[in-house]
Amino acid sequence: MEQFLQQVINGISLGSIYALIALGYTMVYGIIKLINFAHGDVYMIGAYVGYFCMTSFKLGFFPSLLISMLVCAILGVTIEKIAYKPLRNATRIAVLITAIGVSLFIEYGTMFFVKPDPRSYPPLTGLMTRSFRIGNIVFSAQQILIISITVVLMVLLQFIVKKTRIGKAMRAVSLDRDAAQLMGISVDKTISFTFLIGSALAGAAGILVGIYYNSINPLMGMMPGLKAFVAAVFGGIGIIPGAMIGGYFIGLVEVMVAGYGNSMFRDAVVFAILIIILIVKPSGLLGKETREKV
């Protein structure tokens, strides 16, 4: 039982990271119906920005977190402007291929500059190296940090989406782009803003994953990116609470498979879940079926 609870804690901290990335996938999908394959790479960039802030510039954890969120936000918006915006009216396949192209570009461009070898992440210092016990369950300060940062960001996101003007615009555009345009909402601005928010979250996730796994490399965005995408699909792509639920679910499953089964199979299980979900309920846990009108 204690071991199980311990795994749950581990699962929740990993799931937090997936949830943060999944949010970006889901928001972008919600608004322009694009699986933004480059999103995983934005998060990789976030990890590297954090790394250089903490090592080369000797900044503390929180300033590094903010800088990396900022850089990723700018990167996300730039990607949208250069690669996706010219394709607003192109076929979905065309945009998806573009996204794959952007992803390759960032991955290998980064690899060109920082070299392919993994780098070990700077360890946290002071208070954050501690751990706490409740009964026999150990919470590391690191896990608490990951979970609490995620929760704060999610609350912030909910606030933005539900309460602010731009959040309302986001919801309007994802419901019906043309109608939103007619209502005087600037669709382009709203889409840019969506990329900005999603990418900033990915930047945060990048730093957190650096802390969690202690190692980063230029292709690190691919696998967690795909898994976060699975999380988004699981919860119902386009639906913000769905991405959060999906993120925690995938995190838990992965930790459980590794803990009780064979850690070699955790990726396979995640993809098997994806395929089952797609076949049984493609619209995901919280999604609604839609049908083409003939």
């Binding site: 192109a90 192209g101 952007v102 390759l104 960032i106 060109f112």
Partner: peptide, 14 residues
């Protein structure tokens, strides 16, 4: 090579 492939994708699609 991969960077060029990636850029090719974007450029072709646009």
């Amino acid at each position: 090579n991969m960077v060029i492939n990636g850029a090719l994708f974007v450029i072709i699609m646009i």
